[in-house]
């Protein structure tokens, strides 16, 4: 085993007791080996700090609880119901209009007279309690439309922040990405880019914002790069996408 391999194996606890003892003795006797060891140790320690963030279970529960409460609420405003065709379950006759409650409790500043304030309870049920694949499918299908209902937009934003699976949160970003040309979606993603810590979600948002080819994204990326606490993969993605945007202008 090469010296470097042995150092790494030691740090990763891959040596057996005898090999560890041998290595430690060798390190006592060889200052160069010890120096090399300390250097590797420092490098690995800095890598250790790259722990990925996951949304708190409390947040998820809060979200699920809210959605469940909405389903349990009395069926009001049924005359405003609009069936969203791509969803197979949207045809359920007993659909409940949740938008009024949704808007009041979820989004303080949303338009109250929207024509699109509809959301199907089964959809809510699916995105809050369904299997991962069902949640991803629900997210993709509901955004497979030309215009995005503000209520649904808000619900997908909640999924992007709170779903327990980062694969579902990734699907939420991909879906919102179809509407990144809308300023409200762009602002929503810029805000999320700064708040969400999970590297894969940040990377997806960076790529999505770059599609818009405007200065807001570039300014945001540059401001983020000025901070020191970025994950390496995210930092790399910001650099790459700034270059992409600079080539365009």
């Amino acid at each position: 085993m090469e010296r470097e391999e042995k150092i790494i194996a030691y740090l990763l606890n891959e040596l057996n007791t005898e090999e560890r003892a041998d290595f430690e003795s060798a390190m006592h006797a060889d200052p160069e080996l010890k120096q090399a060891f300390l250097s590797y140790q420092t490098s690995l320690s800095s890598l250790d700090k790259l722990a990925a963030e996951t949304p708190s279970i409390e947040l998820k529960r809060k979200f699920e609880s809210f959605l469940k409460n909405e389903i349990a609420k009395p069926q009001a405003h049924q005359n405003n119901l609009r069936i969203l065709s791509p969803l197979k379950w949207m045809g359920v006759a007993a659909s409940i209009l949740l938008a009024g409650f949704f808007l009041n409790q979820f989004i303080q500043d949303a338009p109250t007279n929207s024509d699109f304030n509809t959301i199907n309870p089964e959809w809510i049920q699916t995105v809050s309690t369904g299997k991962t694949s069902e949640r991803i499918q629900a997210i993709h299908e509901i955004t497979d439309k030309n215009d995005l209902d503000p209520t649904i937009l808000k619900a997908i934003e909640e999924v992007m922040y709170n779903d327990q699976s980062s694969n579902v949160r990734l699907a939420a970003v991909e879906s919102l990405g179809q509407y990144v040309h809308q300023s409200e979606v762009q602002l929503m993603l810029i805000e999320a880019l700064q708040k969400i810590e999970t590297p894969i979600i940040k990377i997806e948002i960076i790529n999505t914002l770059t599609q818009n080819k405007d200065d807001k994204a570039k300014d945001t990326f540059e401001a983020m790069l000025a901070k020191n606490d970025l994950n390496d993969a995210v930092r790399n993605e910001l650099h790459t996408n700034i270059r992409k945007l600079e080539n365009i202008y």
Partner: peptide, 22 residues
């Protein structure tokens, strides 16, 4: 599957699945 550094090798699988690794 949500991974940062893992390589992921699957065989004899069917789906559904959502897998990412940075």
């Amino acid at each position: 599957v949500s991974a940062n550094y893992n390589r992921v090798e699957l065989s004899g699988v069917t789906g559904p699945m959502a897998i990412h690794s940075v």
